[in-house]
Design a protein around this nucleic acid. Sequence first.
DNA 1: CAGGGCCGTCAAGATCGCATCAAGATCGCC
DNA 2: GGCGATCTTGATGCGATCTTGACGGCCCTG
Lengths: 262, 262
Amino acid sequence: MTGVSDTRRATDTGKAGAIRVLVVDDDPQILRALQINLTAHSYHVVTARDGRSALTSVGDVHPDIVVLDLGLPDLAGTEVIAGLRAWTQVPIVVLSARTDSADKVTALDAGADDYITKPFGMAELLARLRAAVRRSATATGGGERIVTFADVEIDLARKRVRRNGRDVHLTPTEWEMLELLVQHRGKLVSQRDLLLHVWGPRREDRTNYLRVYLAQLRRKLEPNPSHPRHLITEPGMGYRFETVSDTDEPVVAVAGDGEQAR
Amino acid sequence: MTGVSDTRRATDTGKAGAIRVLVVDDDPQILRALQINLTAHSYHVVTARDGRSALTSVGDVHPDIVVLDLGLPDLAGTEVIAGLRAWTQVPIVVLSARTDSADKVTALDAGADDYITKPFGMAELLARLRAAVRRSATATGGGERIVTFADVEIDLARKRVRRNGRDVHLTPTEWEMLELLVQHRGKLVSQRDLLLHVWGPRREDRTNYLRVYLAQLRRKLEPNPSHPRHLITEPGMGYRFETVSDTDEPVVAVAGDGEQAR
DNA sequence: CAGGGCCGTCAAGATCGCATCAAGATCGCC
DNA sequence: GGCGATCTTGATGCGATCTTGACGGCCCTG
């Protein structure tokens, strides 16, 4: 991880709730200036000095937005953008000293969200960051930030889970998984998407991780962990989060009565 | 609707599938230049000359993106932006002659997605439009794609199938086949295409697989599996998915020749 | 009327994927 | 340096899924 100044996990609470921004630049001056300014505006800043460490640290840090300087020593700007866009939708704001229109076009078409030419005003940068974050917030979360099912309550904004009013403690990895599933409530989330979201592109094939953590989430959240009704496996395809338990269930014999029912 | 040059509704198919862009500017020169350039890049262009008509025409036209010049005669730029943001998330790209940083900040914070200062290069504008459209397309999830027939409901985005409101569980292979057929609804899908899509190039000749899985799909989805009306075999050619049950059947056709129709 | 394709159906064996458990390796904090 | 929490990794058993072959019906052709 050389070149990365901060390897905290997403849910580590250096500043709970602060917006995480990854700043990528090889010029220590600019890096420092941005770090100070952004921190002053209560962003949680993580920095990287080259393209490679930028790519890896996005997987580690899960920033809410990336500020990317073009002209890094190791990789071309488009390579960095493409490397990120291959697996994440995190907003990318490009900084560049080149005013050439062609550069803007290639960067934007590679998947960047915005392009600012140096020298730039800090006020403008901040405004563009706000705009980018706002967009991605409405895109992902949009409506309800609190989801409930059974006796569980999930607060996406506060990254907090309660069950019967009591806090349920989730590890960082558990939370990352649950978050992605909840954000796509009802949708099937492929194993690949889950692995990319939680572990980044380097663990794409470790499907066994999913099994372990899904089991832990079920143990913590499902009324009956061995008969999951909300964290559902779609064999061979992926997983699905469901707020309403489907009324099916093969039934456990007749006799008796209620049974733990739904 | 004075001032609006085109009042087509969203569903009017002047250019089916073309991206609709609403250009708002009071300068006829710029308006015309943009109209020509954007049309040349196969956008469907609608124009407005002032803020009021811009607000109404967004409701009428449902553009995919708005290009908004600041400095309109009737309303301030922020008012237009705020008026739109009150009810729609359509991407707004602001054009302005003023390079003042404060203007950018207020426009972006009011809800604009991007800000370009005149004079600008057409290539850059086009790239920024592409970026904005791309974002909003992925944000809205590309639209709900739900196909229904009989008592069955197929949700392509969620990869989910329901019948009479109950989930129907499909195996990965079953889903892949159904997906391809549904995506080409009404069209004939050759056996080869199906085999390639589901099993890849190594099983190109295993047409018996198709029989097995088509039978399973029919068993799970067709009202009468032995008389399929929606998953239809075209002997020797391939298969076809049909949402409307063809009123064919019984009838032995008229005397004469008839031939087996369709 | 016989024969050959092509298709639908069925069932059994082989394979794959998942849940679960538990132990080692790491990390972060004191 | 020690300790607890967390992450990684491997082994096992079981059920779901895929693959394969056989059989019979239908339709067209000769």
